[in-house]
Simulated assay, not measured.
Amino acid sequence: MLCAIYLLEGKDFNGNKCSVFIENNGEALEKCTPIIVTNSADLQFLSEAELTAKVTPSEYGVEVKIYNNK
C-alpha cells in the first residue's frame, strides 16, 4: 500500500488565500486514489469529485497528476 500526504498553501483561481490537503493512496504508482480537503469555496468541488492519480518518477523526484474521472 502506498500513501503520500501533501499540504499546499497558496491562492485559488480567484486569488483567494487557501489551503489544500491531499492524501493519495494506492496499490501501484499508476493508479492511486486521492482525497482532497480544502478551505476554498471555489475549490470545494475537488472534495466531492471522483479522482484518480498517477505518480511517475521525474528528474526532481516524482510528478503527481490528478485526473477527474467524470
Results as ranks from 00 to 15, higher is better:
1 M>V: 13
1 M>L: 14
2 L>E: 10
3 C>S: 15
3 C>H: 12
3 C>L: 15
3 C>W: 07
4 A>C: 11
4 A>T: 14
5 I>D: 07
6 Y>P: 03
6 Y>I: 10
7 L>Q: 08
7 L>I: 14
7 L>G: 04
8 L>S: 06
8 L>I: 09
8 L>P: 00
8 L>Y: 10
10 G>P: 00
10 G>L: 02
10 G>T: 01
10 G>D: 01
11 K>I: 05
11 K>L: 10
11 K>Y: 13
11 K>E: 14
12 D>Q: 02
12 D>T: 00
12 D>H: 02
12 D>M: 02
13 F>E: 14
13 F>T: 06
13 F>N: 12
14 N>M: 13
15 G>Q: 06
15 G>M: 04
15 G>V: 01
15 G>S: 05
15 G>N: 07
16 N>M: 09
16 N>E: 14
16 N>P: 00
17 K>L: 11
18 C>Q: 03
18 C>M: 14
18 C>A: 10
19 S>D: 00
19 S>N: 12
19 S>H: 11
20 V>L: 13
21 F>L: 13
21 F>S: 11
21 F>H: 12
21 F>D: 01
22 I>Q: 05
22 I>R: 06
22 I>S: 06
22 I>Y: 03
22 I>F: 01
24 N>S: 09
24 N>M: 02
25 N>D: 09
25 N>S: 10
25 N>Y: 08
25 N>I: 04
26 G>D: 01
27 E>V: 09
27 E>F: 11
27 E>P: 04
27 E>W: 07
29 L>S: 11
29 L>F: 14
30 E>F: 12
31 K>T: 05
31 K>E: 08
32 C>A: 07
32 C>E: 07
32 C>V: 03
33 T>P: 04
33 T>N: 15
34 P>G: 01
34 P>N: 02
36 I>F: 01
36 I>D: 05
36 I>T: 05
37 V>M: 06
37 V>L: 11
37 V>Q: 09
37 V>N: 10
39 N>Y: 00
39 N>C: 05
39 N>G: 03
41 A>C: 03
42 D>Y: 09
42 D>L: 03
43 L>F: 08
44 Q>V: 10
44 Q>C: 10
44 Q>E: 12
44 Q>A: 15
45 F>C: 13
46 L>G: 07
48 E>G: 02
48 E>R: 11
49 A>Q: 05
49 A>W: 00
50 E>R: 11
50 E>I: 01
50 E>M: 04
50 E>P: 08
51 L>M: 05
51 L>E: 15
51 L>K: 14
51 L>A: 03
52 T>V: 05
52 T>Q: 15
52 T>M: 07
52 T>H: 14
52 T>G: 03
53 A>C: 06
53 A>N: 08
53 A>F: 02
54 K>L: 07
54 K>I: 11
55 V>A: 07
55 V>R: 10
55 V>K: 05
56 T>H: 02
56 T>W: 01
57 P>F: 08
57 P>G: 09
57 P>C: 06
60 Y>E: 15
60 Y>W: 11
60 Y>V: 08
60 Y>F: 13
61 G>M: 02
61 G>V: 01
63 E>L: 11
65 K>M: 04
65 K>L: 03
65 K>S: 09
65 K>E: 13
66 I>D: 14
66 I>A: 04
66 I>F: 04
66 I>Q: 14
67 Y>C: 01
67 Y>V: 00
68 N>F: 02
69 N>H: 05
70 K>L: 12
70 K>A: 15
